[in-house]
Amino acid sequence: MILLPRGIPVKEKVDPAKVNLPEALKKLKESGFSGYLRFDTPQGVGIVIFEQGKLISALFEGERHVLIAYDALARLFELALAGSCTLDIFRLSNELAMSIHALLHGEVLYRGQELKLIDIKALLGQFKSDQLSGCLRIYTAEHVALIFYRDGNPLGFFHDGSTEIETTPGTSMSVARLPGAKIDVLSSKGNDVSVMADLMQSADIGKLWQKAQEQRQRLQKQEQEEASRTQGFAEQERRQRLVALLRSTAERHVGKIGGSLVDKEFERSLAAGLTEAGFTTFFDNLGKAAKLVAGPTAVNTMLDEMKRGVRGMAKAG
């Protein structure tokens, strides 16, 4: 799971299946947006980072794989169109957007260590002696704070609701005092803003979206065909069980000829479907035919039992 503090919310809990994502990304580009988009899905988490209107990073982290750049965007488009996905957009400063980018594409040195078991002074001393660049990520189930370092020296703090790298601990360090707080240690490499590629200029995002839409349409068609086949099998099985019930009832009351009468009338009256009108016609015609070979009492008893059986099967589904 990708743990990042929330910046200033721009949009929250949006259903991206209802959004034209290429158009939304284009608007963020044109407005010079800096910040990130977070996609939460059952299959994983995606982060898309903008810096001054440039889409500088896209990452998708699933249970078994990590995708970046266009592969990540393509996967996020697919999951967005499939539903069961939420989108949040947070605004950050330019510097912080770049720092988040470096963090996501860095290396995790330690993950999920309980803070109370860590010698923080020794850890910070190691950062300084090794001249590491990266961050300490301190978090609980509900809060996240980042402490950034460059060449072993602290740069500042980032916590929920901030847009800038702050120079005082404040809220960031308060997370460390919460019960169950954990810490990750991440290293990163510096990024030169001037050479960061804009993914929206180096590829046709619209084509990625179109491909995802076409794939979704194919999947929907397959699902509909499968549902239709399943429904057809269920209908066929129901018809077979119904015929067996009606045949056995007819044979008990009017003899073997009753089974033949059921087969004939079932195909005639209910061939188009097991409808109420069809059953009415079936029972009327079967009653008339049966009275030619059996007495009215036996026929009426047979029909009453059949109708109860049909109602019972309908309730049972």
Rank of each mutant, 00 (worst) to 15 (best):
L73R: 06
A74I: 05
F77C: 09
E78C: 09
E78H: 13
L79K: 15
A80G: 11
A82L: 07
S84N: 13
C85E: 12
T86V: 14
T86R: 10
L87H: 08
I89P: 05
I89E: 05
F90D: 05
S93H: 08
N94L: 05
N94W: 01
L96S: 15
A97Q: 11
M98Y: 07
M98D: 04
S99N: 10
I100C: 00
H101P: 05
L103T: 07
L104T: 04
H105W: 03
G106Q: 10
G106L: 11
V108S: 09
L109V: 11
L109C: 03
R111T: 06
Q113G: 03
Q113P: 05
Q113I: 02
E114K: 06
L115Q: 01
L117R: 07
I118N: 07
I118L: 02
D119V: 02
K121W: 08
K121A: 15
Q126A: 02
F127V: 01
F127R: 03
K128W: 02
K128G: 06
S129E: 14
L132H: 00
S133T: 13
S133F: 04
C135K: 01
R137K: 14
R137V: 08
I138F: 03
E142R: 12
H143P: 04
V144F: 00
L146R: 01
I147P: 00
F148P: 00
R150L: 04
G152P: 06
G152L: 03
P154D: 02
L155D: 02
G156Y: 00
F157R: 06
F157T: 03
G161Q: 00
G161I: 00
S162G: 13
S162A: 15
T167S: 09
T168W: 05
G170L: 13
T171N: 09
S172D: 02
M173E: 11
M173W: 14
S174A: 15
S174F: 10
V175N: 06
A176V: 04
R177D: 10
R177P: 03
R177N: 11
L178I: 10
P179T: 11
